[in-house]
Design a protein around this nucleic acid. Structure first.
Lengths: 185, 185
DNA sequence: GTCTATAGTGTGATAGAC
DNA sequence: GTCTATCACACTATAGAC
């Protein structure tokens, strides 16, 4: 792995664990096994590195979601598979957590990938839900856009509950709760 | 307002806006109009002040919730009122955001009020939902615990979506989405 | 490309005068 | 109780040698 790649990977991990404010260039360098000069040679500074890290994380997340939502199965099956997919629940969502970082949200360049990822995710889920509704798999009165927002919110909020509780259990409860509401009627 | 009170209020605001890592004693003092000596006279340091601030916020939140959930109306009416209550959506949840702060979660004293607040909230909502189910207002097969987790997660995740989008709209969509699922069958 | 040296600022806290 | 002075350290970045 090249030095720039190692720096980006270090930044990704630290942004996930400690957020943007809590991540220092020094910590990034140490984790990557790179010196200061090296880091500032490849990147203009902390924001530049963070942009590379966030962009890469957003791309990976999108690909992972599309693998499930664009795969085989009925609409409800695909949504269920997405909700029940294995996750490192207590680590939280690497994109969602950036949302709480004022310095990220204040920088348009850093904010864009966060905004776009969630917009895409909601749209993609809404498409699948609309498909399920049109095929009679879901209630005819179901609002795909609102329900998609609910589902994404359950995941993001599930992470919050799990971290508060110190266990993944409330995350899984929240997921099963919304699936029961979705499938039951 | 006394100096200790002003310091606590400053800390509450800054924890909400910038989180624990992003909040410096200096910023707290400046916002409170207090000097360093004054701050360290009344509090032993940043963690001590944060504990006072978090405790106060948790107490207020609990009282606000109980006012609605313990008020008049059917179970669904009270849950709807709680979900639709006016909120400063883009500011996020002052307790939920602490969940993303590794230094808060690493300190058992700071973590406890966060953990207890969410545990209480889920239990309280589950009670109301069980009541609604037992009175035939909600589906007989509804799981109160899981559904309560779902509802709290929708709120917490709604904040995340709203901040990502830069507008409160997805928060309201998520809320209406879950209410539709809850009331429809 | 990578290194070390250095700078300027902020952090979190203590000391001791008033 | 509140003030100013001071501390040791970390942060983010630049300079210039190698």
């Amino acid at each position: 792995m090249s030095t720039p790649d190692r720096l980006i990977e270090s930044t990704r991990e630290l942004l996930w664990e400690r957020g943007y404010v809590g991540t220092s260039p020094r910590a990034i360098q140490q984790r990557a096994g790179a010196g200061q000069g090296s880091m500032y040679h490849h990147f203009s500074g902390k924001p530049d590195l963070a942009l590379a890290a966030i962009t890469r994380t957003a791309e990976e997340m999108r690909a992972g979601v599309e693998e499930i939502l664009g795969g085989p199965g009925t609409a409800v099956e695909r949504v269920s598979a997405y909700l029940r997919r294995e996750r490192e629940v207590l680590r939280g969502c690497p994109i969602g957590r950036l949302t709480q970082d004022p310095d990220v949200m204040a920088d348009p360049a850093l904010r864009r990938p966060v905004e776009e990822t969630f917009a895409w995710l909601r749209d993609r889920l809404a498409e699948v839900l609309a498909e399920g509704r049109d095929l009679g798999e879901l209630d005819a009165g179901l609002d795909p856009g609102a329900t998609a927002a609910t589902i994404v919110a359950v995941l993001q909020g599930g992470y919050v509950l799990a971290r508060a509780a110190g266990t993944p259990e409330p995350f899984h409860q929240a997921v099963e709760g919304v699936l029961a509401l979705l499938s039951h009627p």
